[in-house]
């Protein structure tokens, strides 16, 4: 019997397959559905800020090559205060709920993280990676010192585990990951969507309302995998792999690269909400065939 359960910062997960932030996470009922019907082992909320944000004008998403999507929703969210009741509903899904937080200052990151802790989130994932809105997200993740400072500030302000989601649009993601580790981060999520764009040749105009966006989906998987491999080589805190994971084979690649768990988002487009159940089954099948009993046995074996 194959066991694909895992654990991150003391949070038990029945499978390593979590819902990534920014996907179907605007409402508690949706998060609950992903957990119950979809089979996600943990759910990460839409990134929440201090104030409500309407996000960018459309198109917010355009299909790209090889199952990829380029998107720029623009951190649309109702603000953390409105999310208290959503989190209560999300928790009915019976799996850990991880709150994603962004801010335009250290203070805002702290404010959102503290609120999420008080609402009962199992952990907070700091969005240090979102590429499409000014001085937040990747603005922090692209500066090693800012990443260090914001993680440290939040770590000192909350008791729940703090994750940091990083961008690969930097010269050295390992350096940023190390800075987060030094600041006391409990886990690193890598990677977010890659900066990209689409131009329509009929009109000569960028298609996305924000002109540029983030590329996600199977086409970024090899890049994400390489990042996880590089980070886990140098950093001791658990790494959650994210980027184009669509099949059981994909997920196992990330585990073998050293990931503690995986996050799934764009794969829902091709495989539906039950992708979490499907990938879990595929992982078990492959592991059974290869004679692997659990994830610890294969984690990082590619090193």
């Amino acid at each position: 019997m194959v066991d694909i359960s895992t654990k991150i910062s003391g949070i038990k997960l029945k499978t390593p397959l979590m819902l990534a932030s920014g996907i179907l996470g605007t409402a508690g009922t949706s998060l609950k559905r992903i957990a119950v019907f979809g089979g996600a082992s943990a759910i990460v909320t839409k990134s929440l800020g201090v104030e409500p944000r309407s996000g960018h004008k459309g198109p917010t998403i355009v299909k790209s090559i090889a199952g990829g999507l380029i998107s720029a929703i623009g951190l649309a969210n109702p603000g953390y205060e409105a999310f208290k009741e959503e989190l209560d509903i999300a928790k009915e899904g019976g799996v850990p709920v991880i709150g994603s937080a962004y801010g335009f200052s250290f203070r805002e990151y702290i404010e959102v993280a503290q609120a999420l802790e008080s609402y009962g989130a199992s952990a907070v994932e700091l969005n240090l990676s979102y590429p499409n809105v000014g001085k937040t997200g990747a603005f922090y993740g692209k500066h090693t010192e800012l990443s260090y400072e914001v993680v440290k500030a939040v770590k000192e302000s909350v008791n729940i585990p703090v994750f940091a989601k990083l961008t690969a649009n930097v010269s050295d993601i390992v350096k940023v990951a190390k800075a987060c580790e030094e600041a006391g981060v409990d886990a690193i999520t890598a990677i977010t969507s890659l900066e990209a764009m689409k131009i329509d040749v009929n009109t000569g105009r960028p298609v996305l309302g924000n002109k540029v966006g983030g590329l996600s989906g199977p086409c970024i998987k090899p890049i994400a995998l390489r990042c996880v491999y590089a980070i886990t080589k140098e950093v001791d805190v658990p790494v959650i792999g994210c980027g184009g994971i669509t099949t059981g084979e994909d997920a196992l690649e990330f585990i073998m690269a050293g990931a503690q768990a995986c996050q799934i988002g764009t794969g829902i487009l091709t495989r539906g909400i039950t992708i979490f159940k499907k990938i879990a089954r595929e992982m078990e099948e492959i592991m059974e065939k290869q004679g692997y009993r659990n994830l610890d046995e294969i984690r990082g074996i590619a090193h």
Binding site: G25, S30, K46, G55, I61, S71, I73, A76
Partner: peptide
């Protein structure tokens, strides 16, 4: 927003 069931904005 996205129209393809991925962003979750039109959830009921």
């Amino acid at each position: 927003k996205c129209g393809i069931g991925i962003c979750g904005h039109c959830i009921v």
